[in-house]
Amino acid sequence: METLEQIKSRIEAAVPGARLEVIPNDSPAKQASLLVDPTCALDVARFLRDDPQLQLDYASNVTGVDWLDTAVKEKVKVKKVVDGAEKEVEETVEKKRPGYLEAVYHLYSIALKHGPVVLRQRTENRTDKTHLASLTPVYRGAEFQEREAYDLYGLIFDGHPDLRRILMWDGFKDFPMRKDYVEPDDYEYEPTPHDDVLEKATRHYAPEVKI
């Protein structure tokens, strides 16, 4: 199979207006991924499925990921006056990276038996702009998995035929898999509480085991 850079250049040639970026992966697994803009995601997916060299006709895994607001440390060369002379000094600058939600797709090919090609779609922020393009019209197998990403993360897929909760019950509020999810305070007695369970326990009754 071709490398990700080659695939990226062919997609840019075939799908006009596509905006892509390769995200590297430094672990021993070496599965780099392709970031796709939600406006062109459906066309890119159709190209990947129908292209005779790739024929990625099987969407193996569709999942959501939650990235919180973090600060990223970067080393920047800054001109500073040190001991009377102007020098270039390396300083670590903390940049705020805003949080976002992400949908990751792993595509394989059953016809040509190669893969995987990893696609990612990112939202702009975690609060109100959480719409992404649904790839269900191209890959039917993404139907239940995109529903699960909506149910657990709050990613809204435009173009999905039937977007509703799949694992939680229909009246459930909130999105359980997000990193800032707070559980409801419905505590039951537990004989051996630890860590955060212990904090919850002490709010409801005095600790059992006396030291």
Partner: peptide, 12 residues
């Protein structure tokens, strides 16, 4: 106590 997955061991 630390490695137990459901954290059912309690040691003082």
């Amino acid at each position: 106590e630390k490695e137990c997955p459901p954290q059912c061991i309690y040691i003082v």
